[in-house]
Amino acid sequence: MEKVFKITKGLTGVPMHYCPGCTHGIVHRLVAEVLEEMDVIESAIGVSSVGCTYNNYDYFACDMLQAAHGRAPAVATGVKRVHPGSLVFTYQGDGDLAAIGTAEIVHAAARGERITTIFVNNAIYGMTSGQMAPTTLIGQVTTTTPFGRDAAIHGYPIRMSEMLSTLDGAAFIQRVSMHDVRNVREAKKAITKAFRLQSEGAGFTMVEILSTCPTNWGIDPVGSLEWIKEMMIPQYPLGVYKDVTAGGDK
């Protein structure tokens, strides 16, 4: 018998600290599998941010730097400018990227930095236990919107993929989701394409990944996948928002 599904060498094997059912774990595996399949574990350099995944430098098998909150795209810019031959990626949550790090992600994209951003959107601050994020939905209850997010007070959730796709420096931006097997497979295809386009020097690439937060959503893990489908996808439609190769090979 032959292994059809094995543990990827792109991960160190250190058990992950994420809450049971948190789909960050799946996203980590997908990124690691693509690093292995592209045979770049030995040259890739990743940048972890601040949030639940602050220490994923322990999980990814490639070299990693841990960046200040919101600054991963700037750190990655520095790394890529020193090692243009290396595949460079940032792994960021919605608080890190869409709140404190908005300027850094916008300008990294506008500059067309040859980096890939793995942007995990779970509509909440996980690490600090459930505060409103820029991607929190209208009406969504969090520890800082106890009566539900009210646009009149808290403003509207931000669709980062659409926003960044208006920038000419962005070569490929796709929003995917973790809520079922088909979409997880689609997410892996998107990450593969983003990394491939980076290595071809096409420009800034990003994959926004709708992900769960059972603990702070207060929903069981399987129910959380449903919550993505019913509540998040209407606000954050899945799909390719930028693809300079569109028309060419998809």
């Binding site: 018998m1 059912g21 774990g25």
Partner: peptide
């Protein structure tokens, strides 16, 4: 049937599948 759906949805590298 070795489809690996379980492994695909596992966040913690618990499952390996042979066929």
């Amino acid at each position: 049937i070795g489809c690996a759906f379980c492994a695909i949805m596992c966040p913690d590298q618990v499952i390996e599948v042979e066929r």
